[in-house]
Simulated assay, not measured.
Amino acid sequence: MTLGGYVHLARMIDKCRAVLAGTEGEYIYPCPLDKRLMEFAGVTAEQFTEAVTASRTDEEMIAWFQRTATPRPQSEVDQWNRALLLRGPSSTDSQKRFDAYRDAVDPSRTDLTSWADLQDLEEGRDVPCRQAANSDRETY
């Protein structure tokens, strides 16, 4: 799912709102995925948090994000979106954390290799079975 043309933007807005309200629970803002989106967009966590504080609706946040983000051709945004959805653990330590999170939710899902799929699984969304040796998965 995208919001304003970016995957992860809706989740990042919701997590920031939860942190501001003190209701984030186990969610982390800004997490590494949040930081990747902010870096790609050319905004800081401080700027984003200020915008969330000042915005009452998702539409206001979309407008702010599109005004503020580094302008990029849609093809580049689409490529970035795909890369984020395919991104998996990038180090041995990261793989260990990934495996521990996955095993806590469903240890049988050894087919999962991306953080996005793991988040979906953890939050109860349907995640199709993947081929364990899927060469399309990227780690960066």
Rank of each mutant, 00 (worst) to 15 (best):
Thr68Glu: 15
Pro71His: 09
Arg72Tyr: 03
Arg137Cys: 03
Ala132Trp: 10
Leu37Ala: 00
Asp34Tyr: 02
Gln119Ala: 11
Arg97Ser: 06
Lys35Ile: 05
Arg11Asn: 01
Ser135Leu: 15
Glu123Ile: 07
Thr70Lys: 10
Phe65Ala: 07
Leu20Arg: 11
Asp103Trp: 10
Leu33Ile: 10
Ala18Ser: 15
Glu59Pro: 00
Gln95Pro: 01
Cys129Trp: 04
Thr68Leu: 09
Ala10Phe: 06
Thr44Pro: 13
Ala116Gln: 08
Arg82Val: 13
Glu60Ser: 05
Asp136Val: 14
Thr68Cys: 14
Asp126Gln: 12
Arg102Trp: 05
Gln119Asn: 11
Glu60His: 03
Leu20Ala: 06
Arg11Tyr: 00
Thr49Ile: 06
Ile62Thr: 13
Ala63Cys: 10
Phe98Thr: 10
Asp126Tyr: 12
Trp115Ile: 04
Tyr27Arg: 11
Glu46Met: 09
Gln131Ile: 12
Cys129Phe: 08
Leu85Cys: 13
Ala104Asn: 15
Ala116Ser: 09
Ala83Lys: 12
Asp58Trp: 01
Leu121Val: 08
Glu123Phe: 09
Ala100Glu: 11
Pro32Phe: 02
Leu37Ile: 01
Glu24Thr: 08
Asp14Thr: 05
Lys96Thr: 15
Ser75Asp: 12
Arg56Trp: 06
Thr68Gln: 13
Ala69Thr: 02
Gln131Asp: 11
Arg11Thr: 09
Asp58Gly: 07
Thr110Asn: 13
Gln47Tyr: 03
Val19Ser: 05
Trp80Thr: 06
Ala132Gly: 15
Ala104Thr: 15
Cys31Phe: 04
Glu59Asn: 06
Glu60Arg: 04
Pro128Asp: 03
Ser108Met: 12
Ile28Gln: 09
Lys96His: 15
Leu3His: 00
His8Cys: 01
Tyr6Pro: 00
Val52Lys: 03
His8Trp: 03
His8Asn: 05
Ala133Asn: 15
Val19His: 08
Pro71Ser: 04
Phe48Tyr: 02
Pro71Asn: 07
Gln66Leu: 14
Thr2Lys: 12
Asn81Phe: 06
Gly42Phe: 12
Ala104Asp: 15
Lys96Ser: 15
Ala100Met: 10
Tyr29Arg: 00
Asn81Asp: 12
Leu9Met: 07
Pro30Ile: 06
Leu20Lys: 04
Val127His: 04
Arg130Thr: 08
Ala45His: 05
Gly22Cys: 15
Leu85Ile: 14
Arg137Thr: 05
Val52Phe: 09
Lys35Ser: 04
Glu39Asn: 11
Gly124Ile: 07
Glu59Gly: 01
Phe98Trp: 12
Arg125Ser: 06
Lys35His: 00
Gly22Asp: 12
Asp58Glu: 12
Ser90Trp: 03
Gln131Tyr: 07
Arg82Trp: 14
Leu9Gln: 02
Tyr101Cys: 03
Met61Trp: 01
Asp14Met: 06
Thr70Cys: 06
Phe65Thr: 08
Cys31Leu: 02
Leu86Ile: 08
Val43Glu: 10
Asp120Trp: 10
Gln95Ser: 05
Gly25Lys: 14
Ala21Val: 13
Ala51His: 01
Val105Leu: 05
Asp14Ile: 06
